[in-house]
């Protein structure tokens, strides 16, 4: 039946076709009993869910923990021992960004003014989070692990200009820690 309808029968899936269940035919007496019984069956299905308990999470009081790979707001990092910034201002993150939301202006380190571990450092490092699409390519591109995607996702603000994150904001510890899951949880 199914293949007879094909105007151009060049290809046939053979045995791999299964016909779906047809809708029950309309009919006065049967319809009436069915309407009654099927409504009961539907009610049984919904009421049976009561024992499963609620799945609602009381956000924002209760937050969903994120997975280790979750890509939230970016973080810039320092070396723990020396306190120097890991970023050397190479602009690879800006080159990798599909949304063009990263701006890096590099400057030379001097012996009196040493900011990063390399020859140069990022004098300006800005991420426009209102443009960012959180693809994480900056993290992939960075050869020094200087920028990583953090776990914060509550990023709304009242002003668009407040969403341009500067280097200091990205280097700082987040005010509130987002709960994190273990990898195999």
């Amino acid at each position: 039946m199914a293949e007879a309808q094909l105007p151009v029968s060049v290809w046939s899936p053979g045995e791999d076709v299964v016909e779906v269940r047809r809708a029950p035919a309309p009919g006065a007496a049967r319809s009436f009993t069915r309407a009654f019984l099927e409504t009961l069956r539907g009610l049984k299905t919904t009421f049976a869910r009561v024992i499963e308990g609620p799945v609602t999470i009381q956000y924002p009081e209760e937050k969903v923990p994120v997975y280790p790979r979750f890509r939230g707001r970016h973080r810039l990092h320092r070396f723990e021992e020396s306190g120097l910034e890991k970023c050397v201002g190479c602009s690879l993150c800006a080159a990798a960004c599909p949304a063009d939301c990263i701006r890096v202006v590099a400057a030379e380190n001097t012996p009196e003014h040493r900011v990063s571990a390399g020859e140069r450092y990022a004098a300006v490092y800005e991420i426009n989070l209102s443009r960012c699409i959180f693809c994480g390519y900056c993290e992939v591109a960075c050869p020094f692990d200087a920028i990583t995607m953090g776990h914060d996702y509550e990023l709304s603000d009242y002003d668009r200009s407040d969403l341009i994150f500067t280097k200091e904001m990205l280097l700082a510890e987040p005010l509130e820690r987002t709960p994190l899951r273990r990898e195999d949880e």
Binding site: M1, A2, P13, D16, V17, V18, E19, V20, R22
Partner: peptide
């Protein structure tokens, strides 16, 4: 796997 098809 199968391809589910309808009739009507």
């Amino acid at each position: 796997f199968k391809i589910p098809v309808g009739t009507a």
